[in-house]
Design a binder for these strands. Sequence first.
RNA 1: GGCGCAUUCGUCUAGCGGCCUAGGACGCAUCCCUCUCAAGGAUGAGACCACGGGUUCGAAUCCCGUAUGCGCUACCA
Length: 509
Amino acid sequence: MTEEITTRPARTRYAPSPTGSPHIGNIRTAIFAYLWARHTGGQFLLRIEDTDRKRLVEGSLENIKDSLLWLGLDWDEGPGKGGPFGPYVQSERLELFQSVAKKMVEDGTAYYCYCTPERLDAVNKAKQAAKQAPGYDRRCRTITEAEKDAALASGLTPTVRFKVPLEGVTTFRDLVVKPLTVENSTIQDAVLLKSDGYPTYHLAHIVDDHYMEITHVIRAQEWLPSAPLHVMIYNALGWTMPAFVHAPVILNPPGQKGKLSKRDNAVSVSQYQELGYLPEALLNFLVLLGWSYDDHTEFFTMQELIEKFDIRRIQPTPAKFNLDKLDWINAHYINHVLSVDDYARRCLPFLAESGVISPETAADPGDKWEFIRAACALVKDKVKILTEVPVEIDFLFKPGTDLQYPATDLIGKNDTPAAAAQVLEETITYLRQIPNETYNDREALLAGLSDISENKLHLKNRGLMLWPPRVALSGRTKSPDLMGMIITLGRDETIARLEQARQNLASLG
RNA sequence: GGCGCAUUCGUCUAGCGGCCUAGGACGCAUCCCUCUCAAGGAUGAGACCACGGGUUCGAAUCCCGUAUGCGCUACCA
C-alpha cells in the first residue's frame, strides 16, 4: 500500500462549488491535491460542483480559475481545458447522476422518498423533543403502493435516498487520520437525488470521482463524518474506492474560536491578493499549515514543493491561522527572493490603486519606469506587503512643496536649529558642486557627507549630519535610506527640498 | 443532545520506545550592526509533551479513561 502511493501517478481534483472567491482553507486543500498530482507525475483536475442552484454566485468560475492560476496551480483537465472525462461541470452531467440513481433503485440499494419537506421537518422536531438524534425515519422504505400513488397524484416529485444497511458497522480508512468505525444504524438514509433532479454531493462526487478515475480524494476534514456513508455507497455501486486524505481544518487566529471565518479575517484568495501578498508567499504559508517537510525548512519554491510534498506528512490536527507568520514569509519573498525589477513591476497596481501614479502609468510606465523602479527599491527591505509600498514612498511622487511636517522635526537629537540649518547649508553646497558620477554614487555621497560631518562641522556623529536632510527630503522621521532618496529625487528636486527645509527652520526663529 | 476526529512552547511544527535534561520557525525580550525605520547577526525567556491510569527494563512516542478543542448531525457543499 505504502509503496503504491509513492510510485503510481495520482489523479487528484479540486472540486469547489461556485459560491464566490475560494476560501483560503479550501484553496489549501487544492494546493495539497495539486502537489500530490504533480509529485507523482499524475493529473490535477478542476471540477465544478454546482448542484445547489440556490447558492450559485455570478462570476465564481472565473474567480476560481483566477485564484488557481494566480497561485500557480494549473489544471490538466477541467473548465477551459477540456479532457477525456468531461464535462467537468456537474450541472452538465445530470443524466449520468440520474441514471446511476435509477440503477441503484433498481438494484435495491436506494429508494424513492415521497416525504414532503414539511413532514421531514416534523419528524426532526418530534425526535428532538423526544431527546432522540434527529434524522429521517426511513418511512418510505416501507411505503405502500396506495400511499405512493397518493403522493404522486398530489404532484410531488420523489427524491432518491440511499438505503443504508441497518446492521453491522462500517470502517473507513484515511491516509492521515486514523481508521474510523461507525454503527451502520447511526447513519442517515441520505438523499442522493434531489426532487429538482440534481444530485447531492454524496452521489455526485462519488460518481464523478469514479468516472474521472480519481485515485486520491483530498478534501476538508468536515467530510470525515460522512465518509462511512460514502464507503457504503461505493460498496452499493460495486466500485473500488480511491484513497482518501482528510486535510485538517484551518482555525481562526489565536484568541478567536472556531474555523477561520470572515467575520474578523480576510478569508478569500482575492482578499490576500488585494492586500498585497505575493502568490508564492501565500502558497508557501498555506502549504505549511498542516504539512511540513522536516524540522527546519521554511521556504519552498513550487519546484521544491512538487519534489518534496507527501500526503502522508499531512497533519491530522487543525491549525490556527497565524497572520504574523504569513507577513514574515511575504516580507522574506519581497526582500530576499524577488529581483528589484520583478518587485517593482508588482508594485505598479498598488501604486495606481492608492493614487500615487495613474492607472495609465501603471499599465505602461514608459520613461517613468526608472524613477518608479528606484522609488520602490528604496523600501524593498522594509515592506511586508505590497499595499505598504505607496504609503512608504508617496512623498517621492508629490511636489516637495506639498510636504507637511513640523519644522522642529528637522532638528536632530542633541542638535540645535542653528546646527541643523548649518547641516542643510553644507549639504546643499556639497550637492551643488559634485559631478554627476559622484552624485549618483551611494558610497561616494555618503563619504562626502561624512567628511563634512567629521572634518568641517566636527559633529559628534554622522547621524547628526544625516538627520536634517532626511526629514527635509521625506517630511518624515522614519524614511528610506538617505542616499537612496537623494539619488532618486535627483539633484534639482533634492536641493529644492533642502532649501525649503532651511527656510522652515528659519521661520522657527 | 448524538456521532466522530484531534491534543508537543502564545502560534506553526520536528519527534513515529532509549539519540529528548524535547529540536526548528513566527512572535516577544536583550544585545550587535547602523544615517532614521527596517533588514541582517547573536543571545534569551517560553512546553513538567492536556490530565489520570496502565503496558514496558525504559513512553512525548503504545493502550484505556477524563477533560478540552474542533467538526458533522439539510432535498448545502
